[in-house]
Each structure stands twice: as structure tokens, then as C-alpha cells.
């Protein structure tokens, strides 16, 4: 039977990890499929998993009273969704919404956290890699906040 291990090993997030670590991560992974419109998780809900999108698109959304659902970011192929599983109180910060039919790998965060105490090296590796994910998201949101293409851009008269 085909296992997920070679697929997990090739994912950008896990590339270069020791084979034994890939094996442990694979033990906490499963395939998942979501229909367009389906929510992978809701804000405030338990952050006990994360996803890596293999096909399709999901959005991170936040509900603003009177304005409806606002999309903060669209996430696509090979992108990681969810880092709240690493940080107490392990609650989702955004709604995670499939906007098209989506295939993903889902990783059980509680399962992985349990492995960290017996394998701190794995914990450190994943913390480092997820820090990159967080850093990039923070960077992207900072740029969004700058309103780069506002009226000040392009005025050299």
C-alpha cells in the first residue's frame, strides 16, 4: 500500500528533515478533501491540526459585524494553513474556508505536540520551520497594512 511518507518528505515545509522525523510526522498525517464552501475550522475553535494544501484554495477570513466575512489572505498549493496548534491556548484565529474543491494533507497537532517531549530535536525543527511561516505571514500582513498602491504611489509630477 502506498504511504504518505514520500509525499510528506517532498513538501517544502518538511524538505531536508531527517527520515525518522518525516516518519513521525507522516504518522500524524492523513489525506483530506473539502468541498467549496466548507469550513476547515472556525475562529475560536480548537487549533488541534494544520493543513498543507495540495490542490485548491482556502481563505483565512474574519467576520466583521455589518460588513460580513472579510478575506485576510488566500492560500493555495503547498501553502501551510494553521500555526495556532503550536501556541497555547490552541485556538484558531481565523475562519478557514475552502473557496474551491480542495485536497489537503491534514496533520494532527496534538499528536505532534506529544512527540515533541520525547523528541525535542523534532520540536525544534518544526518550531523553526513554522517560525518561517509565521514570519512570512506577518511580513505579508505588514505590506498589506502599508497600502502600497495608495494615492502616494506613482505621483512624481
Amino acid at each position: 500500500m502506498e504511504t504518505l511518507e514520500p509525499i510528506v518528505a517532498e513538501l517544502p515545509l518538511f524538505k531536508g528533515l531527517k527520515p525518522e522525523h518525516v516518519q513521525i510526522i507522516t504518522g500524524c498525517a492523513a489525506n483530506a478533501r473539502f468541498e467549496a464552501g466548507e469550513f476547515l475550522g472556525r475562529v475560536g475553535g480548537p487549533a488541534d491540526r494544520f493543513w498543507i494544501i495540495r490542490q485548491g484554495r482556502v481563505t483565512l477570513e474574519i467576520h466583521a459585524p455589518g460588513r460580513g466575512s472579510l478575506t485576510v489572505q488566500t492560500i493555495g498549493e503547498n501553502d501551510v494553513v494553521g500555526w495556532s496548534w503550536l501556541v497555547p491556548p490552541y485556538q484558531l484565529r481565523f475562519d478557514v474556508h475552502a473557496v474551491s474543491s480542495t485536497r489537503a494533507l491534514v496533520f494532527d497537532g496534538r499528536c505532534l505536540r506529544g512527540k515533541f517531549s520525547s523528541d525535542p530535536e523534532l520540536g525544534y525543527e518544526l518550531m523553526q520551520r513554522f517560525s518561517q511561516v509565521i514570519l512570512r505571514r506577518l511580513e505579508a500582513m505588514s505590506i498589506q497594512l502599508l497600502d502600497l498602491y495608495g494615492d502616494h504611489y506613482g505621483e512624481h509630477e
Binding site: 460580513g68 472579510l70 489572505q73 488566500t74 503547498n78
Partner: peptide, 23 residues
């Protein structure tokens, strides 16, 4: 194509253009 901000009627991508490079 991606936009920095969008209302509920937009079905395209949201996020800065740099987020498109990794994929």
C-alpha cells in the same frame, strides 16, 4: 492576480503579490 483587500463579493485571491511567488 491578488488584491490587498476585498469585500465579500470578490472571489479572487487576497494577499500581497509576494505571497504568489512560493507557489
Amino acid at each position: 492576480v491578488t488584491v490587498d483587500r476585498a469585500g465579500p463579493g470578490w472571489h479572487g485571491g487576497v494577499g500581497v503579490v509576494t505571497t504568489l511567488i512560493p507557489r
